[in-house]
């Protein structure tokens, strides 16, 4: 019987979008059965349009910057867009997959992606905002799988 990996994806920024999809797709390649439960801001990762994924240097002192940037400067309009554009360029230059690509690979490999129904209601999201091929469920749905998973991660 194959091993099982259960992940909760709770963050919706461009940088934090990577760990769940990298781990899920790789585990699937290693013949794990994988389910990822997307909750709160993590739901952004299941939207048809991933254009809203951004990264901010604000409140993130570990983020490598080409030049030292005081917090006050990071508050300036356009800084988040600039940081996001720079990160995307770097991702491309280094041969790192895009989030859309990794998500497609997950779906192709049979990774089950579950959207938290409560969060969908809470934020007034519409089901048609999300990609096809996902499921909608609640905490009990997650535990049904995670209860006998070999690895469970909260991201």
């Amino acid at each position: 019987m194959s091993k099982k990996l259960a992940i909760i994806a709770s963050k919706g920024t461009l940088d934090w979008a990577y760990p769940p999809f990298i781990l899920a797709s790789t585990a699937a390649a290693l013949d794990y059965e994988v389910q990822v439960f997307f909750t709160f801001y993590g739901l952004t990762l299941l939207k048809k349009d991933l254009g809203g994924l951004r990264v901010s240097p604000l409140g993130n002192p570990a983020m490598p910057m080409p030049v030292p940037m005081p917090n006050l400067v990071q508050l300036a309009p356009g800084m988040e867009s600039m940081a996001t554009a720079m990160m995307k360029q770097k991702i491309k230059d280094k041969g790192v997959a895009s989030i859309g690509e990794l998500r497609d690979l997950c779906l192709e490999a049979g990774v089950k992606l579950i959207a938290c129904q409560m969060t969908v209601d809470l934020f007034d999201f519409k089901q048609e905002d999300f990609i096809v091929g996902i499921e909608f469920g609640g905490a009990a749905t997650f535990f049904e799988f995670a209860g006998d998973a070999d690895i469970s991660l909260f991201i």
């Binding site: 990298i22 390649a29 041969g95 790192v96 997959a97």
Partner: peptide
């Protein structure tokens, strides 16, 4: 290609 693409 960078991790995890070569494996995938």
């Amino acid at each position: 290609l960078n991790c995890p693409l070569p494996i995938l």
